[in-house]
Amino acid sequence: MKLLTHNMLTSSIIKGVKKGFPLGIAATDIKVSEVDFNPDFIKKMIPKLEWSAICEAAESIGHLDGLPKELAPDYETDEDFLKKAHHVIMEVEIKEGDLICPETGRKFPIKNGIPNMLLKEDEV
């Protein structure tokens, strides 16, 4: 799972959970793989992301990798920044571990890079 995807997910599917964002990450296996850099896509995605949650998640798994925590007003023209952002949201992948609901502590396991976001029948 990429950090881009992580930024889109909440645990508010659980009964009683209000915001459920951002999910905590407990990673046991992280893989960094090269993905073609496409500045136009990164520029397009950034306004859709919760930037502080990106940085928080990246830092928690030790992969902030020099990414600035504040979005500069001219980030669209800053190629170096876009490359760093690309690296963090597209190339860092959680292969094994858990996503953790910030309110209830309920864990959603990630296996083979695929998070299992299904609730059990007693939770729906």
Binding site: L9, T10, I114, P115, M117
Partner: peptide, 19 residues
């Protein structure tokens, strides 16, 4: 990007935002 195991009837899995 990613594929997830999820139940399509549970919309609030996704952060409220046109994604």
């Amino acid at each position: 990007l990613d594929c997830l195991v999820a139940d399509a009837s549970q919309h609030s899995l996704w952060r409220q935002q046109p994604l």
